[in-house]
Computed example of a mutant assay.
Amino acid sequence: MNAKRPAPAERRAQLLDAADAVFAEHGVTAPLDLIVERAQVGRATLYRQFPDRKAIMLALLERSLEKTRQAAQALGDDDQAFFKLLALVADRIAVSAPLVDYWRAVERGDEVIAQARRQMWEAFQGPMKRAVEAGLCRQVLSFQDLSLVFGMLGGSLRGETAQQRKKLARRALQIIWHGLAD
């Protein structure tokens, strides 16, 4: 009896989950065969979805941006949404350090990265304004200020393990929250 094949979107998500885990564990230069093994699919399935490593990296970036947008939307009118989103980004940085490092190494003028930064800015706009209106944050941050905050969270990449990076990210968040609070 043949098992029903997963839908392409489901298979794509399965491959991205595997890629995220493999890259977090082995770095972004890990053999793509490790993704195939982790996802328990054939090579052809991987290459049908993603023709090369860059396509995987772009898909992981877009998925991360989408999760941030969804989190911002789900938090709705929560006055703490801005800080919760910062915590989500900090955790993502700590858990997926090799991916974050990869994107930090891409040239500043790269249009994909520029677009990703704009999308992050847009996701944070509403929550940031609500935090200011609620008196939880001194001022709405500029695009450059928010980029600087993300860079500060990136300091957690200095930790050698995910646990150390999470601890550094939490400390960076404390410092940032203290600096932003009224």
Rank of each mutant, 00 (worst) to 15 (best):
T29D: 12
W121L: 12
R165F: 06
R48C: 01
I56T: 00
Q139T: 05
L141Q: 10
R130W: 13
D33V: 06
E122M: 07
A24K: 06
V106T: 12
R117M: 07
D17T: 13
Q49I: 00
G135D: 11
A24C: 08
R158Y: 12
A30C: 04
R92K: 04
N2D: 11
A30M: 03
H26C: 06
L46S: 02
R53I: 00
Q174V: 03
A97Q: 13
L88C: 03
L88R: 09
R43G: 12
R171C: 02
Q174C: 00
K67W: 00
R171F: 11
P51T: 03
T68S: 09
A81N: 03
P6C: 01
V140L: 10
S156E: 12
K166G: 03
G155H: 06
I176Q: 05
K84R: 15
D101W: 07
L153C: 10
Q125F: 01
A114G: 11
F83L: 07
F23Y: 15
D20L: 14
A39L: 03
Q163S: 13
R69Q: 14
T68R: 13
L180Y: 03
D145T: 02
E133Q: 12
V22K: 10
A24Y: 06
F50I: 05
A3P: 10
A181C: 01
M128R: 04
A114L: 13
S147R: 14
L46Y: 02
L136K: 14
L86A: 08
Q73V: 10
R130Q: 15
E66C: 01
A172T: 00
F23D: 11
Q80R: 13
R170G: 03
Q70P: 00
I175F: 04
